[in-house]
């Protein structure tokens, strides 16, 4: 079963749990919560795109997908040119000041290797970050949309 890390952005309540749990796990958080346009909360992090532009843009072949389809960086190959940052639509990249390599969300690869889920998805209280099979994610999305349609028709 293929799992995806999914950000259901409109459910985000701006509580910072994703960023804070990530910071606890890795000290330098790989997902960041921004408040924009008068306070709308938006979590910014890697979406592990199916057709990841960062992988195509990397001149050194340092970005790759692991067996479960999550985008990872090989720090040995990375030259720190930031081409991936240029093409990433989600601002997912960061440069490690010590290794001079790109760092990014790994969807908690060490936890996943033990059959566990990423920290942000495990603890997001608003159910705005999910780590589920693609079929479950689309099921959730349809349910959320149905609820929204129902409540907006009540307001008519």
């Amino acid at each position: 079963m293929k799992y995806k890390l999914y950000y259901h952005q409109t459910s985000c309540i701006g509580c910072e749990t994703c960023e804070r749990v990530c910071g606890f796990l890795y000290e330098r958080p790989r997902v960041h919560l921004y408040r924009v346009l008068g306070g709308i909360p938006v979590p910014i992090g890697c979406r592990h795109c199916e057709k990841a532009p960062c992988i195509k843009a990397c001149p050194e072949g340092a970005l790759y997908k692991d067996d479960d389809g999550f985008v990872l960086v090989d720090p040995e190959k990375c030259i720190g040119c930031l081409m991936c940052a240029v093409v990433c639509p989600f601002g997912a990249m960061d440069l490690d000041p010590i290794t001079k390599s790109i760092t990014k969300c790994t969807a908690c690869n060490e936890l996943r290797a033990r059959g566990l889920n990423p920290g942000c998805a495990s603890l997001c209280p608003a159910e705005a970050i999910m780590f589920e099979s693609t079929s479950d994610i689309f099921e959730e999305i349809r349910k959320k949309v149905a609820e929204k349609l129902a409540s907006s028709s009540l307001n008519l």
Partner: peptide
């Protein structure tokens, strides 16, 4: 979905 406070382990690993 459920908030998993013990997200860093499985019960049988403890």
């Amino acid at each position: 979905m459920t908030m998993n406070f013990a997200f860093m382990c499985k019960p049988n690993e403890v």
